[in-house]
Structure formats: structure tokens, C-alpha cells
């Protein structure tokens, strides 16, 4: 048996889309996902999307970077082969911590930024070369697609779902 198909409604205006999402959800229909070509302001609130935890992630990557930088610099510059650059004796980490701070800062930022970006790619599975998962090419241009999963809305018939999309101004309805 083929995988059950999802139902999509295509809208051509973000204001209509916002109203549509509100009224579809008011009927008790669950919206699985909305595909938009650009960020629609306030849509996450209408859909009740949970607040992202990416910032926490970034903080943890930052702390990791900080720790690695401190350990690394201590090992390279002080412990393994004490280096004397520009007359600053590096036989202690503490006395030279001032000159290590820029590197520590940079490495913290590097780890936080890259960690956050890579986490984002993983979470959304949007690496370079990964095939697009948007249901309709127009959702990268000027249309907005609302995705419904019929099996999550079992109390509604397929006609109900389609008319819910149609009534709220969908210009095209398709299954995929």
C-alpha cells in the first residue's frame, strides 16, 4: 500500500494565509506545517510553534569552545613548550591571560556560530546538495502552502479538509 498522501492548500498572499491558518485551526483541524518563501511575521504565534532552543544550543557550543580554547592555549603556550613572544614570559597561564583572551574569544565565537549553523542544518536537514522537501516549487517563489495530514485529522473527511482550505482562500489544492 502506498504511503498515505498529505493534503496541501496553496495561498497567494501572506495576510490571507495568516487568517486561513487561524480559521482552519479554530475548526479543530491540525496544521502540520506551512511552507513560505519568506518569514511571515507572527505566523509562528498563530501556529503555536514552540520557541526555538537554538540559542541554548549556541550557548553550550560557546561554553565548549571557551573550555577547549583555555585548555588548548594552556597546553600549547604554557605547558608543552613555553613560548616567549614579544618579551612576555608565558610560563604561567594566569600572568599572560590578557594576551590569550582575544584567541579565547574568537574560538568561543567560532564554536558557537558553527555549532549553531550545523545544528540548524541537522535539525532541518538542509545541507547543500539535499533535495528540497517543499511540496510545490511555487513555495520558493510567491505562494504559501499549508500542509494537512489526514491521519492526524481523522474526525474530518477528506472533503471537509479540502473545503476548509478552499473556504479560506486557497488558490490550489493538491495531494502529495
Amino acid at each position: 500500500m502506498a504511503a498515505p498522501k498529505k493534503l496541501y492548500g496553496l495561498y497567494n498572499d501572506d495576510d490571507i494565509l495568516m487568517d486561513a491558518c487561524g480559521s482552519i485551526q479554530n475548526k479543530g483541524i491540525q496544521i502540520k506545517e506551512v511552507y513560505t518563501p519568506f518569514p511571515v511575521h507572527g505566523l509562528d504565534k498563530v501556529l503555536g510553534v514552540k520557541w526555538t532552543r537554538l540559542a541554548i544550543c549556541s550557548f553550550m557550543f560557546g561554553i565548549t569552545g571557551l573550555t577547549l580554547a583555555v585548555i588548548g592555549i594552556w597546553y600549547f603556550m604554557v605547558s608543552d613548550w613555553p613560548m616567549n613572544i614579544g618579551g612576555k614570559p608565558s610560563f604561567s597561564y594566569y600572568e599572560n591571560v590578557t594576551s590569550f583572551i582575544p584567541v579565547t574569544f574568537e574560538f568561543t565565537v567560532l564554536c558557537a556560530a558553527h555549532g549553531m549553523a550545523i545544528t540548524y542544518f541537522f535539525r532541518n536537514w538542509t545541507f547543500p546538495g539535499v533535495s528540497a522537501r517543499n511540496p510545490h516549487p511555487k513555495t520558493t517563489d510567491d505562494h504559501f502552502a499549508v500542509e494537512l495530514e489526514p491521519w492526524n485529522n481523522a474526525t474530518f473527511s477528506k472533503e471537509d479538509l479540502e473545503s476548509a482550505l478552499k473556504d479560506t482562500g486557497a488558490v490550489e489544492i493538491f495531494e502529495k
Partner: peptide
């Protein structure tokens, strides 16, 4: 603050 301090501390 740190920029000013670091440069002065380093060149000494």
C-alpha cells in the same frame, strides 16, 4: 576597555 588595556599591556 579591554582593547585599550590589552594594547598598552602588551607593548608595555
Amino acid at each position: 576597555f579591554f582593547c585599550q588595556f590589552l594594547l598598552i599591556w602588551y607593548s608595555n
